[in-house]
């Protein structure tokens, strides 16, 4: 029982991270139908920026978080302009391979500059643990930070998407880009904003993970990136609440599998769940089914 509570606490944190990264995947897919494989690497770079800011400039957690989000959002926009804009009209496979080339470029480019070894992220969050209901299960204060930051960011995102002009434009473009363009929406700008917002969220996730686990390396984005992508697909790619649902769903599934002794297989279970969901609901849990017109 105690272990279960402990794993649930871990599940919330892991799910938050997945959800934050998954949001970027889903927003980009929703708007340009691109599986942005480089998204996990933006999360990695976010972690490195956070690392640099806290280690070398001795900034606190929140300034580092906000600056890192700002810088990753700029990086996201640059990547879109340089790499994805030229292939916007191209094919699925070409787009996918382009995204993978960007991902490799970021991973190995980073490796070249910061060296492949793992770095220790400074302790920027209070290291305090509270016992839950007087059991031996503990709640790390860091867990609370992760959850609060995640929820805050999601509320801001919700506000941006539903209450601002930019958000309205994003929704319009994802629904029907041609019609949106005819209505005077600047597609290029909207896509840019989408990348900026998605990348900022990934950057935030990077800083959170860095300060939670205290260790970062240039390939740290590969597996969480893939998992967050799985989460986005489980929830229904292109559907924003789906990414959040999928993220937490996957986070809990993985920690529960670990709790029952299957930690070696937790990645396999994640993929198995993905396949199962796709077979039962081919467009994900919250995805809409669209019939092909004959």
């Amino acid at each position: 029982m105690e272990q279960l509570i402990q794993q649930l606490v871990n599940g919330v944190s892991l799910g938050s991270i997945y959800a934050l990264i998954a949001l970027g995947y889903t927003m980009v897919y929703g708007i340009i139908n691109l599986i942005n494989f480089a998204h996990g690497d933006i999360y990695m770079i976010g972690a490195y920026i956070g690392f640099a800011l806290t280690t070398f400039l001795h900034l606190g957690f929140f300034p580092a978080l906000i600056l890192s989000m700002l810088l990753t959002s700029m990086l996201g926009m640059v990547i879109e302009k340089v790499a994805y804009k030229p292939i916007r009209k191209s094919t699925r496979i070409a787009a996918l391979i382009t995204a993978i080339s960007v991902s490799l470029f970021l991973e190995y480019g980073m490796m070249y500059f910061v060296k492949p070894e793992t770095r220790t992220f400074p302790e920027v969050l209070p290291n305090k643990q509270i016992s839950i209901f007087n059991t031996s299960a503990v709640l790390d204060i860091k867990n609370i930070y992760i959850l609060v930051v995640t929820i805050t960011l999601m509320l801001i995102l919700q506000y941006v998407i539903y209450k601002t002009k930019v958000g309205k434009a994003m929704r319009a473009v994802s629904l029907d880009s041609d019609a949106a363009q005819l209505m005077g929406i600047d597609i290029n700008k909207t896509i840019s904003y989408t990348f900026a917002i998605g990348s900022a969220l990934a950057g935030a996730a990077g800083v959170l993970v860095g300060s939670y686990y205290n260790s970062i390396n240039p390939l740290m984005g590969v597996v969480p990136g893939l998992k967050a992508f799985v989460a986005a697909v489980i929830g229904g790619i292109g559907v924003i609440p789906g990414a959040v649902l999928g993220g937490f769903f996957l986070g809990f599934t993985e920690t529960l599998v670990s709790a029952f002794g299957g930690s070696l297989y937790k990645d396999a279970v994640a993929f198995a769940v993905l396949i199962l969901v796709l077979l039962i609901k081919p467009k994900g849990l919250l995805g809409r089914n669209i019939r092909e017109k004959v």
């Binding site: 340009i32 191209s90 094919t91 669209i290 017109k293």
Partner: peptide
């Protein structure tokens, strides 16, 4: 087919 445009920019009519 896999080499066709990704339905303009459109998420929803991609399979057309």
């Amino acid at each position: 087919k896999l080499f066709k445009k990704r339905g303009g920019l459109n998420a929803n009519n991609q399979s057309k």
